[in-house]
Simulated assay, not measured.
Amino acid sequence: METAARKQPIHLGDHVRRMRTALGVKQAALATELGTTQQNISRIEQEEEVDDMTLERIAKALGVTAEAIKNFTEEGTVFHIQNMHDHSSAGAGVGNCNQHTFNFNAVEKIIELYDALLKSEREKVELLERLLKNQSAH
């Protein structure tokens, strides 16, 4: 009897599809970015194995790391987003940019953005009310 838990094999094509979908990118848009067809992206997403070079190209086009695709979790809420801060033109030398990997919970980010938007709207209402009071007073 085996006591060690068996690891489920990674289905990289499925991970590509789920990452692409989570980021709101259509197959056709990814295909255009990679200079291929939507049908080819569909085929890749059905493959269990994806070669490293293809995976790197897809990751770059999606703005994530290949590791983020490989390690995509079932919950799909935590992403490793790679941001490149480059103050020069696109395609400039690698030495001119800083790479950072960020982890975030998408739901928390949505709530955070909603709260900020709500606060901003309340401030606008207060400002408009003050302006109306000032106009009424004159």
Rank of each mutant, 00 (worst) to 15 (best):
E33F: 13
H11M: 02
E121V: 13
D14A: 15
E121N: 12
G24E: 00
M1K: 11
L12S: 03
I44D: 00
T54H: 07
G35K: 00
A92M: 14
L34V: 04
H15P: 04
V16E: 09
M84Y: 03
E67W: 07
E45S: 12
K124E: 13
F102H: 05
A31P: 01
K109H: 03
K133M: 15
H85S: 06
E47R: 09
I110D: 08
I81K: 02
S120C: 15
F102S: 07
N105Y: 11
F102T: 09
L132W: 02
D52F: 12
I41C: 10
G13H: 03
P9W: 06
V50L: 03
A106N: 04
K133Q: 15
S89C: 10
G95D: 08
H15Y: 02
I111A: 12
Q8D: 10
E49W: 01
D52Y: 05
A68W: 01
R130A: 14
E49R: 03
L128P: 06
Q38W: 02
I110W: 04
E75H: 08
L34Q: 06
H87Q: 02
V125I: 15
E129D: 12
R18Q: 14
E126P: 12
K60E: 05
E47C: 14
F104D: 06
M84L: 05
E47A: 14
R20F: 14
E75D: 11
A28I: 03
F79Q: 00
K7N: 08
E67K: 10
T37S: 15
S42G: 11
M1G: 11
N40T: 01
L30M: 11
H80I: 02
H85R: 02
H100E: 04
V50R: 00
